[in-house]
């Protein structure tokens, strides 16, 4: 293949990765932004999304697309509910203290992993794509499903943006993020907002995971990579800045795709890590973050 088409292929792979990463990282960023909680279990919500998608697809009879559509709705709701319960029973009791919540979410990480191992098993299992269309470019054919993942991610991200900026609930979340105490003084039930934000963050990770399982199999240890990459993206983009998170996901996804194809996946990870180190040294607030006042 010539360089041009090769670069296009690598960019498409990078965009797919960026799409999934953006969804996952926006969830992490939202939780940190509003609640100031560093959720170490975020990757496990991703994993639970993938595994629950496998169960749903397995249980729903009929065409693959039907099971997949069901998973796309049920998995995020289920994982969101689990997250809301974890928030109300654990994080709330810790008064959302930064150190305590890090330790608690590390604990959650192991609990979710062991539960997945017990009830799902150690196997990696594939989920069939809802459709198997191949888009034929002049130089190569490409998975129509992967292109659909990019589109779906864009739709969900636009939805999140519209929710945050155009709805009453989104306004309440943003106000809570800016000043918890004053939010309460204006009738905002901060406990409820936090449960909702934690659920939304987890549901976004789960959505990303459902989109990913037809490409990458569901496995109980699959949460590690999305967690690490989300942290990288959120640090580069600026903690709590959603715009920065999306831009950084594009940056990391594209560079990972391109460098992996032309050189090696290991080099791609080295460069991403180097980028984080540089951001931490030269611009600790991230590309789009503001300096703490």
């Amino acid at each position: 293949m010539d360089f041009g088409p090769f670069l296009l292929l690598a960019s498409l792979e990078g965009l797919v990765m960026a799409a999934v990463l953006a969804l996952t990282a926006v969830g992490l960023s939202l939780v940190f932004g509003v609640m100031r909680v560093v959720n170490v279990a975020h990757g496990e919500f991703f994993m639970l999304g993938a595994i629950s998608a496998w169960f749903v697809v397995d249980l729903v009879p009929g065409p693959a697309a039907l099971g997949f559509a069901a998973a796309l709705i049920i998995s995020p709701l289920l994982v969101g509910a689990i997250a809301a319960i974890a928030d109300m029973t654990i994080l709330k009791r810790l008064h959302y203290e930064p150190e305590a919540t890090i330790v608690a979410t590390i604990g959650l990480l192991y609990i979710f992993q062991q539960l997945a191992l017990t009830f799902y098993g150690a196997d990696a299992r594939p989920v069939e794509a809802p459709f198997s269309l191949r888009i034929q470019f002049p130089w190569f054919g490409y998975s129509g499903y992967k292109l659909a993942v990019i589109a779906a991610s864009v739709v969900v991200l636009v939805g999140v943006w519209a929710f945050l900026t155009k709805t009453r609930a989104g306004l309440v979340m943003r106000a809570t993020q800016l000043d918890r105490e004053t939010a309460q003084a204006f009738g905002i039930n901060v406990d409820r907002v936090f449960a909702g934000v934690f659920a939304l963050g987890a549901a976004l990770a789960a959505t990303a995971a459902v989109l990913v399982v037809p490409i990458q199999q569901a496995h109980y240890l699959m949460g590690g990579d999305p967690l690490l990459l989300s942290f990288i993206v959120v640090i580069i983009g600026g903690l709590g800045s959603l715009r920065g998170t999306v831009v950084a996901a594009l940056l990391i996804g594209l560079s990972d795709g391109i460098i992996s194809v032309f050189f090696s996946p290991t080099l791609a990870k080295i460069i991403a890590t180097l980028l984080v180190a540089m951001v931490l040294v030269f611009r600790p607030q991230g590309l789009f973050g503001r300096r703490p006042a």
């Binding site: 009453r168 306004l171 943003r174 106000a175 800016l178 000043d179 004053t182 939010a183 204006f186 905002i188």
Partner: peptide, 13 residues
């Protein structure tokens, strides 16, 4: 709520 607009601050009230 410093990053919210005037209208949004009033909306909260």
């Amino acid at each position: 709520f410093s990053e919210l607009t005037v209208a949004e601050n009033l909306q909260i009230g």
